[in-house]
Design a protein around this nucleic acid. Structure first.
Lengths: 349, 349
DNA sequence: CTGAAAGCGCTTACAG
DNA sequence: CTGAAAGCGCTTACAG
């Protein structure tokens, strides 16, 4: 059934089908697309011919004529980050069946690669684009306007007149911070992503605001947003500030890295250091201890972003203001009171 | 620089460039592709015109003429599985720069979806295909031959004359099983993937062979290869066989599920139940206890599979026998002796 | 309800 | 070293 052009027989085209059915190529096209009027008799003849000659549509010919490919790009910074893997899944689910292909592109969080990937995507004349811009991205409104239907997901870019879908990061990160403050912590390290990313800025703002309200000194650490990067950053943080009793993890890989760093230092969670993560992951629910975390509704975000692209493709207006999807604090068991004042129990190296 | 066809100005074509440079369209094409002889003067004129009119190549036109799109499909069963995410990354790294786009396709391990996705990919007349077939896949050698350069990764299909890249699963799973037998375990549950998948069959064979050699009774459980599925399966297994003291995890999500299931049952690892996983994940290295696991060299597998596709695309011969990449047992801390004979210490519910 | 003509953007022979 | 012609597979106006 799915036999394609091998190296062997030349593949059938609408012309082959037309000849076989004794009709014109346009009639074949009409039957195949289901548009316009075709008599039942003709339709049956064409369908029989399609099966007989083993015709398989050529999307390239169609795209060239239509001046548009039914394909939407999803440009992200790292498919290894489960958040983006989940995002891909939920977006793809919306597009599947609507005849839109989702094309995954990785920027590796590098702005040069980002531009290359976008050029590549653009060469296919796609119908739309979903993008989480790289750090210090040089993308402009003009660049994105070229894609017709462009929507930012998760990360935004300053001064870009493009719709976006984000989590209520300042509020959610503030709540996460207050969760630790409320347990009695004062020395709370925020292990963030790359300086310059909107996600870092927004989560940092929520953290700083909560710390300021509590008159606690903010302790901010930037990372490359990966587990190994966060692991190293946490160790440095602990050495520079031995009094740290709690940490906030920027995303799932960073939260992983924090746990690895704590282990490196012989520190227990939550007895020595409490932890609240941002963005849930399956293992966090049963990790000992289960990790308290701000869950980002990634499926909702993906669905919403996909629908916005669909609306733009259909020419419907979409509000340029950020579409904010609320995160939820899941209280599990990684937050406890700070260790007692007895310095021998603090376990600093 | 990356300004594309907006809704606005009609996009520049080779003709636009040709007119602006005062040359023919073919000359523009030659300059752009870097083939054939072009005088330096002409080249400079063309390049200037390209910049002046903001020309952006149209891959659709090129593909139609070439009867082939410089695109390779990667059809996998679940991008949420970190193994496949890592595979995508390593394959993409090989293709990038070679002018080949990698198109990620998800089958959700469903053979109908698999066929749809392959039809979709085929409609673009791609240059090649990397595929981990769905359970009970109906793909034939003919289906895959249509893609010219087709290579199976991770999973294979019986009676398919197509090159493949796999791990030495029987040997590696045998070694994992012996690791548990050697620690004194006899009641070892193998929590596998879907019945019918080659990966399940190959890992099961290694497990059964090792158990037979030790005259231990095999305890096999099939799952849908996800964390929640494995979690449920493990609980059932523990209830049906209260004497189980060790488990083997089919892949990273299943290993996660096993740990969740143990926690559900109030069982500790490794004091109550020892565990060896198959396929490493970052969190396993610092999970308490760090998980002993067979590491699959996913980057090597991806690179090798990508190179095989490249060879096939270039018309070079590729051995149809499976290309076997060896896994490595990483000994960490999730294996201990089985709990003592005192039944009150077994912690069964 | 159906068909003849034209053209989407590009590149491949074929000439000079 | 360069160009005029033709065509990849499809669909869009335009006729009937």
């Amino acid at each position: 059934m799915a036999t394609l052009t091998g190296g062997g027989e030349p593949s059938a085209t609408v012309k082959t089908v037309a000849a076989h059915a004794g009709v014109s190529a346009q009639t074949v096209s009409r039957v195949l697309r289901g548009t316009g009027y075709v008599s039942e008799e003709t339709r049956a003849k064409v369908l029989a011919a399609v099966a007989a000659v083993g015709y398989r549509p050529n999307a390239v010919g169609r795209s060239l004529r239509a001046a548009r490919t039914p394909m939407v790009g999803l440009l992200i910074t790292d498919i290894g980050n489960p958040f983006y893997a989940a995002l891909h899944k939920s977006v793809e689910a919306v597009f599947r069946g609507r005849g839109l292909t989702l094309m995954l592109l990785n920027s590796d969080d590098d702005r040069e690669t980002e531009r290359q990937q976008l050029d590549l995507l653009g060469s296919y004349r796609p119908s739309g684009l979903l993008v989480a811009p790289a750090v210090h991205s040089t993308l402009t409104t003009g660049d994105l306007a070229g894609f017709g239907a462009a929507v930012l997901v998760s990360r935004t870019l300053p001064d870009l007149a493009v719709p976006s879908v984000v989590t209520n990061e300042p509020e959610a990160m503030g709540e996460a911070t207050r969760e630790l403050l409320g347990a009695g912590h004062r020395r709370i390290a925020a292990v963030l992503g790359p300086e310059g990313a909107s996600t870092t800025a927004r989560r940092e703002a929520g953290y700083r605001e909560a710390m300021r309200a509590a008159r606690a000194e903010p302790l901010v650490f930037y990372t490359d947003q990966t587990g190994p990067g966060a692991r190293a950053a946490l160790r440095q943080a602990l050495h520079a500030h031995p009094g740290i009793t709690a940490a906030l993890g920027f995303n799932a890989p960073v939260t992983e890295g924090i746990l690895a760093g704590l282990r490196d230092e012989g520190l227990r969670c939550p007895q020595d250091v409490s932890l609240v993560g941002f963005t849930d992951a399956p293992w966090m629910a049963f990790y000992p201890p289960p990790i308290t975390v701000v869950r980002q509704p990634v499926e909702d975000m993906g669905r919403l972003a996909a629908r916005l692209v669909l609306d733009l493709v259909d020419g419907k207006p979409v509000a340029p203001e950020p579409h904010v999807v609320p995160g939820t604090l899941l209280r599990r068991e990684s937050v406890a009171a700070p260790p007692g004042p007895n310095p021998t129990e603090q376990g600093t190296v």
